[in-house]
Amino acid sequence: AAFVPLEKSCKAGIAASCFNLGIHDIAIRGNVKRAAHNYAIACEKYSERLEEERIFKLKSCALKTALENCLRDQEEHDPVKCAKKAFWEISDKYDANSTKE
Results as ranks from 00 to 15, higher is better:
29 R>L: 14
29 R>Y: 07
29 R>D: 02
29 R>A: 13
30 G>A: 13
30 G>W: 08
30 G>T: 12
30 G>E: 10
31 N>F: 03
31 N>K: 08
31 N>S: 08
31 N>G: 00
32 V>W: 05
32 V>M: 04
33 K>R: 12
33 K>Y: 04
33 K>N: 07
33 K>W: 05
33 K>G: 10
33 K>D: 07
34 R>D: 09
34 R>N: 03
35 A>M: 07
35 A>Q: 06
35 A>R: 03
35 A>H: 05
36 A>I: 09
36 A>C: 07
36 A>P: 05
36 A>S: 14
37 H>D: 08
37 H>I: 01
37 H>V: 03
38 N>S: 11
38 N>F: 06
38 N>E: 12
38 N>D: 13
39 Y>V: 01
39 Y>I: 02
40 A>S: 15
40 A>R: 15
40 A>V: 09
41 I>R: 06
42 A>W: 00
42 A>I: 05
43 C>Q: 05
44 E>M: 08
44 E>P: 06
44 E>N: 14
45 K>G: 10
45 K>Y: 09
45 K>E: 12
46 Y>C: 08
46 Y>H: 09
46 Y>S: 01
46 Y>Q: 07
47 S>M: 06
48 E>K: 09
48 E>W: 06
48 E>I: 09
48 E>N: 09
49 R>Y: 13
49 R>I: 12
49 R>T: 13
49 R>Q: 14
50 L>A: 11
50 L>Q: 10
50 L>C: 03
50 L>W: 06
50 L>M: 11
51 E>H: 15
51 E>N: 15
52 E>M: 10
52 E>Q: 13
53 E>I: 04
54 R>P: 05
54 R>K: 13
55 I>W: 05
55 I>F: 01
55 I>T: 07
55 I>Y: 01
56 F>Q: 12
57 K>W: 01
57 K>E: 02
58 L>K: 15
58 L>Q: 14
59 K>N: 02
59 K>H: 04
60 S>F: 00
60 S>M: 01
60 S>P: 03
60 S>C: 02
60 S>W: 00
60 S>E: 02
61 C>L: 09
61 C>H: 11
61 C>G: 03
61 C>Y: 10
61 C>R: 10
63 L>F: 09
64 K>H: 12
64 K>P: 01
64 K>L: 00
65 T>Q: 14
65 T>I: 13
65 T>K: 14
65 T>D: 13
65 T>S: 12
65 T>H: 12
65 T>C: 00
66 A>H: 13
66 A>F: 10
66 A>L: 12
66 A>M: 11
66 A>R: 15
66 A>N: 13
66 A>W: 11
66 A>S: 15
